[in-house]
Design a protein around this nucleic acid. Structure first.
Lengths: 174, 174
DNA sequence: ATCTACTAGTAGACTTGTCAACCGCATCAG
DNA sequence: CTGATGCGGTTGACAAGTCTACTAGTAGAT
């Protein structure tokens, strides 16, 4: 469900091919949703089947022909409906916390490795989100992308929270 | 993978039935991993098949007989191995942020509804985590549950970050 | 001359997770 | 006496997501 609505959302901004959708997922939506190539194409065919978007084949010379997908009125309605539905409480799956939960079974060296790796991952991820945020702000100042940027700011807040938490832990582990 | 390791982790603390595992998932692990009943039982059978735990049937009077699962040495080794493996960067799926990303298509009323609901959900979830934390600390003071509690503290930090972010948004939306 | 990467998509197997129903037996409240 | 709830578990159908490999042409680098 969510994937199909996110695809509709992207198509509501501009018509696109599956290939381009994949790139958008990897580039701009990636920090809160990832998508497999195969999954995107499959979802597109069901969207077309349900009349939420239409596909038109476009010939290109030198390149393989592509199928540009365009959202329909019906699709826009479905998107809006989804935007308004109660976002069910997130399932919040976190395999790292799973490891922490049983971390008492690790020795000191392994413990530090566990948390250090996490800290480094969080730091570099934070840097990349910050970069994305700055780049987006530079590219289109003003309020145009307000909500897109808000999702980045959300990620940044959470990464900082994670880093604070890691710092607490490392202080206490000494 | 993760589910099977989390089950092994719980079994490493005490032998248990599938039924009890389900209760533990709902009660103590729920804030970072949820598990469906059917999935737990299926995973248990494959764990047994792989020799990572063994099941012994225990008769009870008045109640249906149960299958207590006990972790094996092989299982403990598999658990440790998992604890040490590089925790692949979380997939971080967040359907709420998906809605925010396209929220420019909502009117003011709908926007406030979206964020208000989120805030209320975060607040009540925060309260429940805080409660769990206090209850656990009261039940077993000292450092016994340090890492279990750390996962709760992680959740609390993140919820506070979420609330701070929501406050920013609401200030800016005015 | 070969190797890599990009464009654009297809296909199949597989794993994971979710939903809903069903089994028997017990206990307790209305 | 009936119905709800707890215990302990099983089954089947599905939805969602992942992984690998394949097609087929272009362009640029080694």
């Amino acid at each position: 469900m969510t994937l199909s609505r996110l695809i509709l959302g992207l198509l509501s901004l501009a018509p696109m091919t599956g290939y381009e959708l994949k790139k958008h997922f990897d580039a701009t939506v990636n920090h809160f949703w990832s998508a497999d190539k195969a999954q995107i194409y499959r979802t597109l065919t069901t969207l077309v089947k349900d009349g939420l978007c239409i596909a038109e084949t476009v010939q290109q010379d030198g390149l393989p022909s592509k199928q540009v997908h365009r959202i329909t009125e019906h699709g826009r309605a479905a998107l809006l409906e989804w935007l308004e539905t109660d976002p069910a409480p997130d399932a919040e799956r976190n395999a790292f916390l799973g490891r922490v939960f049983f971390a008492a079974q690790l020795d000191e060296k392994q413990l530090h490795k566990l948390f250090d790796r996490r800290r480094e991952a969080a730091l570099s991820y934070l840097a990349s989100l910050q970069e994305q945020l700055d780049a987006s702000r530079a590219a289109s100042p003003g309020e145009a992308l307000y909500f897109q940027l808000a999702t980045l700011r959300n990620g940044i807040r959470h990464l900082k929270a994670e880093l604070d938490w890691l710092q607490d832990i490392e202080k206490e582990l000494v």
